[in-house]
């Protein structure tokens, strides 16, 4: 089987200790929670830190509670928990559904929400063994300087492949980060960058502590559409999160649409307030939103699937997100 490199596994009990370890070994350490993303990547030689700092035993990272008008979710909470927790299901049903669609039950049982938010970007030329990547010639995301997706490209376009961030972005979520030197908060919409090599603003010795989501208005309706080859296991070929605040007469108060699975950064579809804000939701408006999403999203050959089809699916699944939104009951107060 594929072998792991030698590393030291630290099991801190407290957050301060974990952050201290990350600072002490900055540049040669990585945090690990469920490890469902990191372990296969280490077996492929994509990460070879000498120190792993385990987060599951850190009490502060385990919490799901309502606090000051927000739902607070600790970074080390498992995806199974996020998908099934009664509070999350009641307040943020769209997030629970997005979490429920990740990978398969065994992965969700150990994979965490913090890990999903920080999931490494994916690409057919990157998620391969060392032998494979060496035989091809290393790419610019790891060990090399060329891009095989965009010939001559100098920026990594590996795909953001996580399912919860697009939903969290439409919900206006914030991540709380900490290093040994202090803490900061970043809105999720500002958390991701368009650099596939390291697609977040998180520093290497910085931890995502928790995700905070404002309790939405009862009029907010959400949908997460995940396109994938199989009904389980797979990463998204396309992830579409829609949040629309509408009243009983379908008057749109706000609308937010995020498309992930394209490049390194989930794309917030722009200009929707102009066409939809304050209007009554009609088939024409849905069609216009779908058209804008289609125009703003251009899939690349970073995943193993036909790009024309993936592009066309943007519009199809935006429509389906609206169908789901209109068919679903209002969230409980």
């Amino acid at each position: 089987m594929l072998r792991l490199h030698p590393y030291r596994y630290h099991r801190p009990k407290e957050l301060g200790e974990a952050l201290e370890l990350l600072r002490e070994h900055r540049g040669d350490s990585m945090p690990i929670a469920g490890g469902t993303d990191l372990m296969p990547n280490m077996k492929h030689g994509l990460y070879t830190p000498s120190h792993l700092v385990a987060l599951k035993g850190v009490e502060e990272l385990h919490v799901i509670e309502e606090r000051d008008g927000e739902l607070v979710i600790g970074a080390a909470e498992t995806l199974t928990r996020v998908a099934s927790d009664p509070l999350i299901k009641r307040r943020l049903p769209g997030l629970a559904r997005a979490a429920e669609g990740i990978a398969h039950p065994m992965i969700r049982n150990i994979g965490t929400i913090g890990g999903n938010v920080c999931l490494d970007t994916r690409c057919t030329y990157y998620n391969q063994t060392y032998f494979w990547r060496e035989a091809l010639g290393f790419c610019l995301k790891k060990d090399g300087d060329v891009c095989y997706v965009v010939k001559g490209g100098s920026r990594c376009v590996a795909a953001h492949s996580a399912d919860t961030p697009p939903m969290l972005m439409t919900l206006g979520a914030t991540v709380d980060l900490a290093t040994a030197d202090g803490a900061r908060s970043v809105p999720l919409t500002k958390f991701f960058t368009a650099d596939g090599i390291w697609n977040t603003v998180r520093e290497p010795d910085e931890l995502v502590i928790r995700v905070r989501v404002p309790i939405p208005s009862p009029r907010l309706r959400t949908s997460y559409q995940k396109v994938r080859e199989r009904k389980s296991v797979d990463f998204p070929l396309l992830g579409i999160a829609l949040a629309v605040e509408i009243d009983d007469s379908h008057l749109i108060e706000s609308i937010s649409l995020v498309v992930a699975g394209l490049g390194a950064k989930p794309r917030v579809v722009g200009g929707l307030d102009k066409i939809a804000g304050g209007q009554r939701l009609t088939p024409d408006i849905i069609e216009e939103v779908a058209r804008r999403a289609h125009r703003q999203c251009n899939p690349l050959d970073n995943l193993i699937v036909d790009t024309d089809w993936r592009h066309a699916m943007v519009a199809v699944y935006v429509r389906r997100a609206f169908e789901e939104v209109l068919g679903q009951p209002l969230a409980a107060a």
């Binding site: 057919t124 063994t129 494979w132 091809l136 199989r230 389980s232 296991v233 193993i304």
Partner: peptide, 22 residues
Amino acid sequence: FKETGLHNAPSLLDYKIPTSLD
């Protein structure tokens, strides 16, 4: 295969066979 002759997806994640749900 990729153009160089490299296998497109030599893993059970990327070489798709149906799950029980499929």
